[in-house]
Design a protein around this nucleic acid. Structure first.
Lengths: 351, 351
DNA sequence: CCGCCTTGTGTTACCGCTAACATCTCCGGC
DNA sequence: GCCGGAGATGTTAGCGGTAACACAAGGCGG
């Protein structure tokens, strides 16, 4: 199953005991010094083509695999990066993680992960410790909560760091433009004639939640309307459901901008139970565009975040830093896209 | 931000250049040999309490962090484990990954990840290579596709391996009992009086898909009914939607067992559009119990898989192997639970 | 034809830690 | 009072690579 399809041996017998193949074994077989093998491995300074070929042959014959620990010890470089993250089961963080790992591998790095048990400084600390103890060369921190984002600010300066979705600080940051997304969502509703637009927000201590609320607020104000109603949720379908029930009893809004798709499904559920037609009676906009969103009842108008892009960009920034770029505090901002589906429609003037 | 709350220096100046603190520095400060420091670090053979305390103090003063590469080189142990996985953005694999990492950290191991780009042997090979190149001591493979599960069978024997959800082979395996889940789902529908129960299956080359179909088939047969209709999907809401449309035109079944929740949401959507009442006209059962399932329209009856448990058990098996337990081919099977909600109801005899 | 540079290769000394053995001290038993 | 052994600590030699320099052989200009 070796990637090169060979059936190399990769162990060598000496005094009757098996031993992993090391550089010296390759050197012996190729009739050169171990240093020449090292040079071939790092295809560095001139090695004659003949020698190079002989060494290569010896390597494949023996199935030689360089020992990363030894190399790391000698060079001082581990080629390991770390990702610390909360709530990796959510679609967003999970997508970023996948993109980060992939980009890292392409750039020749391995990725170690460390989840935070709780969204507090202590857990962040532990995760950092865990990763630095492995001598990672850099860390991507997915810390969407204000508390942990703040904790990042006084993270140990030793190791290069990129923050994803995590507030502001003196380190490079990659984030989707939550504010812009919220503005777009709200303007879309305004353009359909809605005036009283409620907002179901995420938890206060999430950076994204704050930005989305701010965008909604500003877009309304700019249009001469006032932000009348905010209900706080915790991103879960249940919270959306409860907020939806509250909205259903009031019946004083014709549209609602929900801070994420999971809550939006709860809202839709509550409306369905209350006999409220979407979008006939109330329009609903979500945020995230999770894969299920197109199949909600009705299909959800929402803002798509390109998590893959966020992952790739954050990794690129980290690698640049690791490879010696001057320490920057660049902020990469990725705009979300409004995806129109069937949960929004023109306001119905009933009376 | 150090976990111990100290403000240790962690660098030492020598000839005007900064250098990381190493064992020798600690030894010098404590007035002992570096070997004694090593002994304290590994709290091994008797070190006098006084010395131990002095060394500990020196460590914290200097902010000493052992170098893992050096330790790995000397001991031959990296304390790194690997996880290879496809489709980590799905709720199931993502949950397992989180549980695995957590359990690994508790057991004193770090976790590196390697995603498979495509669900084929080649990608699996590459992922394995990537992990073994880092000298991981063991690998958990989340390979729910038959093709990749088969490829595992002739994986290089060198490194301990645990397969999750991945068919059968000579290696230890942890899996949810998909067959049992499907039987339970089908029996539940049968007990409500349904006789013609369709199945929307996952892709042919997924182990889980096959098991779920087999369970459905057997439960029906056992009850004296015949498995009349299988529609194949690809786990996506879209596939479920299309299958739902097909079912809606036929109208010759009163219940459908859908192989996962994401497809189930598509089915519900199709039924809603076709004016089919769930569960009045047709009952629907899903599989997985993703967080959104309770908020579908209507809330979905489904089978809950304890992904966290799967992750923990697989890691425990791997660690046992890594730490020298005899190579086993133990199979851990975890039963899924039927979660009753509103998408299933007694069959309506219309004519 | 000699010395110098270039090219290819070997030698040696680390990187920071642990394993294995050596040494030293102190104690008790005869 | 001397010896043996246990306990505490030190010394040395790797682990498997890479960096830095040394060295040999050949090509070229003066």
């Amino acid at each position: 199953m070796a990637a090169d399809g060979s059936d190399a041996i990769s162990e060598v017998i000496e005094n009757g005991v098996e031993r992993r193949v090391v550089m010296a074994d390759v050197a012996r077989l190729a009739g050169v010094s171990h240093m020449t093998v090292s040079r071939v491995l790092n295809d560095s300074t001139a090695v004659s083509p003949t020698t190079r070929a002989r060494v290569r042959a010896a390597m494949t014959t023996l199935g030689y695999r360089p020992n990363t620990a030894a190399r790391a010890l000698a060079t001082g470089r581990t080629r390991q990066l770390g990702v610390v993250s909360v709530n990796t089961t959510l679609f967003g963080p999970a997508s970023m993680l996948v993109a980060i790992e992939r980009a890292a591998r392409d750039a020749g790095y391995a990725v170690s992960i460390a989840g935070m048990r709780e969204p507090d400084r202590r857990s962040l600390s532990e995760a950092f410790e865990h990763l630095t103890a492995q001598s990672v060369e850099g860390i991507v921190a997915i810390t969407p909560r204000a508390a942990t984002a703040a904790a990042l600010r006084d993270a140990p300066g030793g190791v290069p760091l990129v923050a994803v979705e995590g507030g502001e600080g003196p380190m490079p940051t990659v984030a989707v433009d939550q504010y812009l997304g919220a503005v777009r969502a709200t303007r879309h509703l305004l353009s359909l004639g809605h005036r009283r637009i409620a907002h179901i927000a995420g938890p206060d201590d999430w950076h994204e939640a704050n930005e989305r609320e701010r965008g909604w607020r500003d877009a309304l104000t700019e249009a001469g309307e006032s932000p009348t109603l905010v209900i706080n949720g915790d991103w879960s379908p249940r919270a959306g459901y409860e907020a939806g029930l509250a909205l259903a009893t009031r019946r004083d809004h014709t549209a609602v901008f929900v801070a994420n798709d999971q809550m939006a499904i709860g809202v839709l559920r509550a409306f369905a139970e209350a006999g409220i037609d979407v979008p006939g009676d109330i329009s609903v906009v979500g945020f995230d565009d999770i894969p299920e969103a197109a199949y909600f009842a009705p299909p959800l108008t929402t803002l798509r975040q390109d998590f893959g892009e966020v992952g790739r960009r954050s990794l690129a920034l980290l690698v640049a830093q690791v490879e010696g770029a001057p320490r920057s505090d660049e902020r990469v901002v990725i705009p979300p896209d409004l995806v129109l589906r069937d949960s929004t429609g023109p306001v119905q003037h009933k009376n």
